[in-house]
């Protein structure tokens, strides 16, 4: 019997589980001297199919856009180069958008990474901590001369994804499994993903909206956020954006 270092069994397994090819650790055998290639292959298959299935469940719109067969092949590359490090599958796929950006066969679909980023943010929102959304009454209760200095607590589920493409339209058209018509992919769209109660919503932000919200998420006061948004986009409508951020549930409270 070969001598075994304490961790050899896991080391030997791990080294062969995710790699392409048919290698197996030499210390595994079948019963009564039978071969163990297929037997080890069961574990290799469980790992690959399990992780690929997890990604197909987490990125349904991305999968629909490129097709099932392409997505699974891409996912196989991804799980080998970016295996999960968290034991929680819902934490997986955080760098899939970046992977897609650098994935040569998708070089012409510049917008696909942003769609994947929205899907990843959707999952974050789904599992985020519960919190009551900020109500308009909390804002109107603030003295007028204090309003511009007011800072907000971001809602735990709120996420922003900015895109130079029509990522939100492409995302929702494919997520809903409805007929996808012609989409002008060149229209820039920013997404606000939120879950004030139990339902995740994805909204398209008006011009300047993302700059405004990002500034507030970063902890800047309302006045500064408004000025930042106006500087980027003179057509920025502060009133509409305040109404929108409250209705969307982007914030959970006012910073004292």
């Amino acid at each position: 019997m070969p001598s075994m270092h304490e961790a050899d069994y896991a080391e030997g397994f791990a080294a062969n589980l995710l790699q392409a090819g048919q290698g197996k650790p030499d210390f595994v055998v079948g019963p009564n001297g039978k071969g163990a290639d297929t037997r080890f292959g069961v574990y290799r298959n469980n790992v690959s199919v399990g992780l690929i299935n997890a990604l197909t469940g987490m990125f349904p719109a991305t999968r629909r856009i490129v097709g099932e067969e392409f997505f699974r092949a891409m996912a196989r590359h991804y799980i080998r180069s970016h295996p999960p490090t968290s034991r929680l599958l819902v934490e997986y796929g955080r760098d899939l958008a970046a992977f897609i950006s650098g994935f040569e066969p998708l070089a012409e679909m510049k917008w696909l990474a942003d769609v994947a980023a929205i899907e990843r943010a959707w999952l974050d929102a789904y599992h985020a901590a519960d919190a009551a959304p900020l109500a308009m009454e909390s804002l109107t209760a603030i003295a007028e001369d204090k309003l511009a200095d007011t800072r907000f607590v971001p809602h735990p589920a709120a996420r922003l994804v900015r895109s130079h493409h029509a990522a939100v339209t492409i995302f929702s058209a494919n997520r809903l499994e409805r007929e996808v018509g012609a989409i002008d992919v060149g229209t820039a769209e920013d997404a606000l993903i939120a879950r004030p109660h139990l339902e995740v919503s994805v909204r398209t932000l008006p011009t300047g909206g993302a700059k405004f919200l990002q500034s507030l998420f970063d902890g800047h006061p309302l006045g500064v956020a408004a000025e930042t948004a106006l500087a980027e986009c003179p057509a920025f409508d502060l009133g509409a954006n305040i109404a929108g951020m409250i209705e969307a549930g982007a914030f959970a409270g006012i910073r004292q």
Binding site: A54, G57, M58, P60, L88, L89, V90, Y92, L123, Y126, V168, T169, F171, S172, R175, L176, A191, L192, E199, V200, S201, V202, R203, T204, L205, P206, G209, D237, A240, N241, A243, G244, M245, E247, A248
Partner: peptide, 19 residues
């Protein structure tokens, strides 16, 4: 156009990332 237009709400894909 002015408000935060809802592009997608609900559609909970509850099995995503399930163990």
């Amino acid at each position: 156009e002015k408000c935060y237009g809802v592009s997608l709400a609900g559609q909970n894909d509850c099995a995503a990332g399930a163990h």
